[in-house]
Design a protein around this nucleic acid. Structure first.
Length: 326
DNA sequence: AAGCCGGGGCC
DNA sequence: GGCCCAGGCTT
């Protein structure tokens, strides 16, 4: 995996001991409090979680107190923290563990609201079990360390487990996460201050690891209206951030797109002349292209800056067997 | 595997 | 206005 695994571990642990942030749950030994901190930290930044950690413990100082509390009071203490299923699950968990938390990864994993990450974090931090916790920070650190653009879950599990300092599992897990949160950050990582830089294969281009998620593109129906006048076509000036300043055929999105376009331009009969597909970063447009004549003069589209989408529409028009007369 | 859940900070 | 966050559950 890594040459010199032990020096790598020592370097990261030494860095952690010198630079770790003082957090309310650091040094805590009560498994309940460790669990609470981990649940609060799910998809939540440390700074945001801290006030809720104190507020929640004041209201429910023990697992038993939580088990006996009304759900509404639990949600009240969680109010503002978001992801309220976490609070409901935590209460269910308390009710399901009258004799205290189980002490192994396997058993913790079976509890409501406890997934692979939280089970590993609690098992290692509270009970010293040598199991690697993989969160978003660790994912990023490992992706960069080994220059893997799209780390798969199985690879992450195996790699994290192979790197784990088993005799100090809880500290190790926190060290790797702390490194990701404060040094190996998503943007502008501070590689010069990183204890693992010597071993890092992604150091030259950290922004490539992990590759940004391919944003899921929604399919959106749309309509374009080609209005032909004596001097050319009616064009709209686009606004908006990405296409702002470009020109294009009147375009509307959604199911009633054509009706809205016809209303906007006072057009009745339009003839469908084809379909154009175009993918943006965040959505896939399927554009029905409609044609009609107009009394407006129109203009030459080649004289305007057009987006790729509008060039496709123009190409469609010029490809028609019987091009609509201008 | 994808969608959903929330609020906040940062660019 | 998008991205990301000490993820987990449901479909």
């Amino acid at each position: 995996m890594l040459r010199e695994l032990r020096p790598f571990q020592d370097a990261v642990l030494a860095w952690y001991r010198a630079h770790r942030r003082a957090l309310p749950w650091r040094g805590e030994t009560d498994p309940y409090r460790i669990l609470l901190s981990e649940v609060l930290l799910q998809q939540t930044r440390v700074e945001q979680a801290i006030p809720y950690y104190h507020r929640f413990l004041e209201a429910f100082p023990t697992l038993q107190a939580l088990a006996e509390a009304p759900e509404e009071a639990v949600l009240k203490a969680w109010e503002g923290a978001g992801y309220y299923a976490r609070a409901r699950n935590l209460k269910r968990l308390a009710e399901a563990t009258p004799h205290g938390l189980p002490r192994t990864y396997r058993e913790l994993l079976a509890l409501p609201g406890v997934g692979p990450y939280t089970a590993a974090a609690v098992a290692s931090i509270a009970f010293g079990e040598p199991v690697a916790a993989v969160d978003g920070n660790v994912r990023r650190v490992l992706a960069r360390l080994f220059a893997v653009p799209e780390p798969r879950p199985a690879w992450l599990r195996e790699t994290a487990q192979a790197l784990l300092a088993r005799e100090a599992a809880g500290e190790w897990n926190q060290a790797l996460m702390e490194l990701g949160a404060t040094v190996c950050t998503p943007r502008a990582p501070r590689c010069a201050a990183c204890p693992a830089a010597r071993w890092c294969r992604g150091r030259a281009t950290p922004e490539r690891y992990p590759a940004p998620k391919p944003r899921t593109a929604r399919s959106v129906p749309a309509a374009a209206l080609v209005l032909a006048g004596r001097a050319g076509y009616v064009l709209e000036r686009r606004d908006g951030k990405s296409l702002g300043g470009l020109w294009g055929f009147p375009l509307a999105e959604g199911e009633a797109a054509l009706e809205r376009l016809q209303a906007r331009y006072g057009v009745r009969a339009a003839r469908r002349v084809g379909t154009v597909r175009h993918a943006f970063t965040h959505k896939k447009l399927t554009v029905a292209v409609w044609y009609a004549r107009t009394a407006q003069a129109g203009e030459d589209p080649h004289a305007r800056p057009l987006s790729k989408l509008d060039r496709k529409i123009l190409a469609l028009l010029e490809r028609l067997p019987e091009p609509p007369a201008l």
